[in-house]
């Protein structure tokens, strides 16, 4: 049978004569060498893995794939180990995208927690109303993406309890946070519903000190430190991915531990 790829009218053989010089220079060795240079080129541009470069995009695609893998690894019933009071670090270790001197304290009386997205009751919350909610305490290991860690004791209302109270859609994909220090963040719903994910108001049984997120911050035992936004001002339940401060700069979004 005639190949469907063969043109109905054969090209004029004279074309070959016209390009004889070019055809003669095609060499296997040359193609191999070209392939090697192409490979070397990827090494050169390897220095630049910003979102714009193809390597940057490939690495971010793998990171997004890793998000899915981590969601599969995450066991919603597995509790993080807890530790004795004697191991609590006082005060906790400060970390942010700026120095501790640049912390801008939040006025707790004027502060309100706004709600948005897939939530039935969007009325804002005051500090006193949140203090009346059931509280859980946990003494857990904080692990920073940089590699350091410490034991801290946090208490506050479990995020699950809060989300149930405001009639949030618990089948939504994400819970996103806005903060007073412009540090947006978002977590997966499975982590939001984990019993060791709190809207913390206390550290070591005392009101949260200013540098550590007064009056309200997130503390989840199953994610790296940077996934715990401080000075939360708004919570949104959503199906739209919204990333976060460090996440948008290349750190892995799920960052479960």
């Amino acid at each position: 049978m005639r190949s469907p790829f063969r043109p109905a009218i054969a090209p004029d053989p004279a074309i070959l004569d016209d390009h004889r010089g070019l055809i003669r220079t095609i060499e296997r060795r040359g193609i191999l060498r070209g392939g090697l240079s192409l490979g070397a080129l990827t090494m050169l541009t390897g220095c630049d893995v910003g979102e714009s470069s193809s390597i940057g995009r490939a690495l971010r695609a793998v990171s997004a794939f890793n998000d899915r893998v981590q969601e599969a690894i995450f066991d919603p019933n597995k509790l993080a180990p807890e530790y004795p009071d004697a191991m609590i670090l006082r005060p906790p270790r400060f970390n942010a995208y700026y120095e501790i001197e640049d912390v801008k304290p939040v006025d707790g009386d004027a502060w309100r927690l706004e709600l948005a997205g897939l939530v039935a009751d969007k009325r804002p919350w005051t500090r006193r109303q949140i203090a009346d909610l059931p509280e859980r305490e946990m003494t857990i290991r904080h692990i920073c993406v940089e590699g350091w860690d410490y034991i801290g004791q946090w208490s506050g209302v479990p995020l699950r309890t809060f989300l149930e109270r405001v009639g949030a859609d618990l089948t939504a994909k994400y819970v996103a946070f806005k903060t007073a220090d412009d540090y947006p963040s978002s977590i997966d719903m499975a982590t939001a519903l984990h019993p060791q994910t709190l809207l913390a108001t206390k550290y070591a049984r005392e009101t949260l000190p200013d540098p550590f997120g007064y009056p309200l911050r997130l503390r989840t035992a199953t994610k790296l430190g940077f996934k715990n936004p401080k000075w939360i001002t708004a919570i949104e339940v959503t199906n739209t991915y919204s990333g976060g401060y460090w996440e948008d700069r290349g750190f892995n979004w799920h960052s479960g531990i």
């Binding site: 220095c47 893995v49 690495l59 793998v62 990171s63 993406v145 750190f251 892995n252």
Partner: peptide, 15 residues
């Protein structure tokens, strides 16, 4: 080192 800062190094490492 591979990666101009920690986030990039992590992207490489976890890929």
């Amino acid at each position: 080192v591979i990666g101009s800062w920690a986030a990039e190094s992590l992207l490489w490492h976890l890929a």
